[in-house]
Simulated assay, not measured.
Amino acid sequence: MKSKSLKIATLAHAVYKKCECCNRVKDIYFKMSVLDAAKANYLVGDFDLCKSCGQNFGDILNIKVSTENVLNDFNFSKT
């Protein structure tokens, strides 16, 4: 049930502010949403996480997290 109630999302752009896990001012790469424990339908709260804390929580919860963005579609032709 842990992975259903805790979800980690990678932000589109890093934000420089305090990590709510380690309390250091760093680039924030992840937002961990906390959903209600009963059915995981309602948002209870969230945490802003730096890269190392987000990756650590991902490892603990067995959730794949990444800060890399891979471009899948690319061509040299003009449109």
Results as ranks from 00 to 15, higher is better:
18 K>N: 12
19 C>E: 04
49 L>P: 00
26 K>P: 00
10 T>L: 06
11 L>N: 08
12 A>H: 03
3 S>G: 14
42 Y>Q: 06
36 D>E: 08
8 I>F: 01
9 A>G: 13
11 L>G: 01
19 C>K: 00
32 M>I: 00
57 F>V: 08
41 N>G: 09
44 V>M: 05
16 Y>I: 06
34 V>Q: 09
37 A>N: 08
3 S>T: 14
9 A>Q: 13
14 A>W: 02
53 C>E: 02
6 L>K: 15
21 C>I: 05
22 C>E: 15
53 C>N: 04
32 M>P: 00
50 C>E: 02
41 N>C: 07
61 L>V: 06
36 D>Y: 12
12 A>W: 06
13 H>T: 06
30 F>T: 01
3 S>Y: 14
34 V>N: 00
21 C>N: 11
39 K>W: 04
24 R>K: 11
55 Q>K: 08
6 L>V: 08
18 K>P: 03
62 N>F: 09
38 A>S: 14
30 F>R: 05
36 D>H: 11
44 V>D: 06
29 Y>A: 01
37 A>Y: 07
9 A>E: 10
52 S>G: 04
24 R>Y: 03
25 V>L: 07
12 A>T: 12
61 L>D: 02
5 S>E: 15
37 A>L: 10
37 A>T: 13
51 K>N: 06
23 N>G: 05
56 N>G: 14
53 C>S: 10
56 N>K: 10
7 K>L: 14
14 A>Y: 02
53 C>L: 03
59 D>R: 15
26 K>A: 03
54 G>E: 01
25 V>K: 15
17 K>N: 09
8 I>Y: 01
24 R>F: 12
35 L>T: 01
43 L>R: 12
18 K>L: 07
3 S>P: 02
16 Y>K: 11
27 D>G: 05
9 A>H: 15
17 K>M: 05
12 A>C: 10
24 R>M: 13
10 T>K: 15
45 G>V: 06
48 D>H: 04
25 V>Y: 11
48 D>S: 08
37 A>W: 04
43 L>V: 09
62 N>Y: 07
41 N>A: 10
44 V>H: 03
9 A>C: 13
11 L>R: 05
61 L>W: 04
7 K>M: 09
33 S>G: 09
41 N>F: 15
20 E>D: 09
18 K>A: 15
13 H>C: 05
49 L>N: 01
31 K>F: 02
13 H>I: 03
50 C>Y: 00
48 D>L: 03
56 N>M: 10
46 D>H: 13
29 Y>T: 01
8 I>W: 02
10 T>Y: 03
31 K>W: 04
28 I>W: 01
14 A>C: 03
58 G>T: 02
12 A>N: 14
25 V>G: 10
22 C>V: 06
45 G>I: 13
51 K>I: 07
29 Y>W: 13
26 K>F: 05
18 K>D: 11
23 N>E: 13
5 S>C: 11
61 L>K: 04
25 V>N: 08
18 K>V: 15
5 S>L: 04
35 L>F: 13
